[in-house]
Structure formats: C-alpha cells, structure tokens
C-alpha cells in the first residue's frame, strides 16, 4: 500500500530559500540546490518549492533553478508561485517539475484548475489553500506571500475544497495559517473537519514542531502526507530520525 509522504517545503525568494513566521519576516536559510539535494538524499518523499517573490510581484518563476533541481535530484517535486496560465505551467513542467501548485490564481480564476487538469492531467495539478480560523469558521486567504497583500476572500475553506476537486485538482495542500511557523503541531481539528469532503490526496501543512506532530496528523487515513519547513531547515528534526520514529509507530513510511 501507499506510504505516507514527508514533504519539506522550500520557500524561494530571489533565488534563495527563506523562511518566515506566519508568512512574514523572511530570513535566508540556504541555497536551493544544496537543501534540495540534502533532503532528497536523506529520504524526503517529495519536495515543494514556493516561489514567494513570484506570486507577490506578479512575475513568473525563473526557469533556470527548476532545471537545476531536475538535473540533480531523483525524487518528485512541485513548483508553486506565479502560475497564472497554461503556458506558465507548461514552462515549469517542461523545465523538469512533476507538479505545479496554484493558490491565488485559482481563487481569481477557478477555471484555470480545470484547464490545467485537461492539459497536463490531474496528477500534475496541486491546489494550495491558505486557511485561517475566524470564530467558528475556516476561511480561505489569498495573496499570503506578503502581509501587505494578504486578504480574506470570505470563501469558506470547505466549500473551496469541494469546488477545486470538482474542477480537477489532483491534490490539495491545506496550509492552516493559525498554526504556520509556530510549531504547536498541525491543525488536527481543522484537518479532521475537512476530511469528510476530501477525495484527492490531502497534504497537511503548518505547525510541525516535533516528531510526534507528524504521527498525530498522519494517523488520519485521509491525510496522504505532511509538509513542513523550518523544523527541517533549522535541523530541529532529522529526516531519517523522523521516518524511523514513524515506522516504529506503525505509520506506513518508505
């Protein structure tokens, strides 16, 4: 049977890997290629690159570093940021990415999800959703790459999940914003709440702080993988230790 995926996320800004807390105050943590190779060699199941400069400045991600990643690593990777059309997606996929992930452009033009799925197949099309809890509701946020542009779309997260699936999304990464970068564990409550409408692989994102957090989220059968950034970048969790811990606790892990 399929194993659960552990996915380091690399936020890319101006050609370097950065990490912010709650989507702001970005600090440089290293070179894209060095970190990508390190995680791939250590047993990461997949990598995600979010080009945060591309999505907030309305520019396309540069093709060059994608090609370098494709030449040097032998696991699947997904690129997000600034993908607004079939052409921009094609450029990224032809540069060697296995998947593209769209977030803000999907909110602004939902039919793009359908066009991408038709052109490249659903397995290439991930939709990223930034979701924030307001009182008793979960709401989709847009343009979260910078605190200045981030805004409440007033769309309920659960409604949006159902819509993107209908349109052909092959995978959903749910970033639970209340938890992002604060290391208090994944937002199990929100993820469980969304689970009943999920029929594509769901990747949990936001809040990983310790090994046990991964265990807690991956026991949900609807969750295919867990994504995290700073715990890996800061060497707080080692990939091999994490995978051994999960295996010992009967989570299916490669």
């Amino acid at each position: 049977m399929l194993t659960k995926r552990i996915i380091p996320c690399l936020d890319v800004k101006d050609g370097q890997v950065v990490k912010g807390v709650k989507f702001k105050n970005h600090k440089v943590v290293g070179s894209i290629l060095d970190l990508a190779k390190k995680y791939s060699d250590e047993g990461a199941d997949e990598l995600v690159f979010y080009d945060i400069s591309a999505s907030t400045n309305n520019t396309m991600v540069s093709k060059k570093w994608i090609e370098e990643i494709a030449k040097n690593i032998n696991i699947p990777f997904c690129v997000a940021g600034g993908i607004i059309s079939i052409e921009s997606a094609r450029l990224i996929l032809n540069s060697g990415a296995d998947k593209i992930s769209i977030n803000t452009p999907a909110i602004e033009n939902p039919i793009l999800i359908n066009e991408l799925a038709k052109a490249f197949g659903s397995q290439c099309v991930t939709v990223g959703i930034d979701s924030m809890q307001h009182n008793d509701q979960y709401i989709v946020y847009s343009k979260t790459g910078s605190v200045k542009t981030s805004f409440n779309t007033k769309i309920l997260t659960k409604d949006w999940i159902m819509k993107v699936q209908e349109l052909g999304a092959g995978e959903i990464v749910l970033n639970c914003m209340n938890q992002d970068g604060v290391k208090r564990g994944f937002d199990i409550k929100q993820l469980n709440y969304m689970s009943d409408v999920i029929n594509v692989p769901l990747i949990a994102s936001g809040g990983a702080g310790k090994e046990k957090d991964f265990y807690n989220v991956l026991t949900n059968p609807k969750i295919s993988g867990a994504l995290a950034a700073s715990v890996f970048h800061n060497n707080e969790i080692q990939m091999t230790d994490l995978k051994n811990f999960l295996k010992q606790n009967n989570i299916r892990i490669r």
Binding site: M1, L2, T3, K4, R5, D45, E46, I75, P76, S122, Q123, G170, E171, I198, N199, V200, P201, S224, G225, R254
Partner: peptide
C-alpha cells in the same frame, strides 16, 4: 483517492526479485 500518488512497494519476481523496493507512482 485516485490517482494513486506516492511511494508504493513492489514485490519483484524472478530477475526482479532483488529490485523489490519502494518506487514512486
């Protein structure tokens, strides 16, 4: 969920027995 997406185990036979491992699908 469909597609199957991720790492799955292969049980190899004959010449492929030694290649039994996890692969990406």
């Amino acid at each position: 969920s469909i597609p199957q997406m991720g790492w799955n185990h292969i049980e190899g036979l004959n010449d492929y027995k030694d290649l039994s491992n996890y692969y990406y699908f």
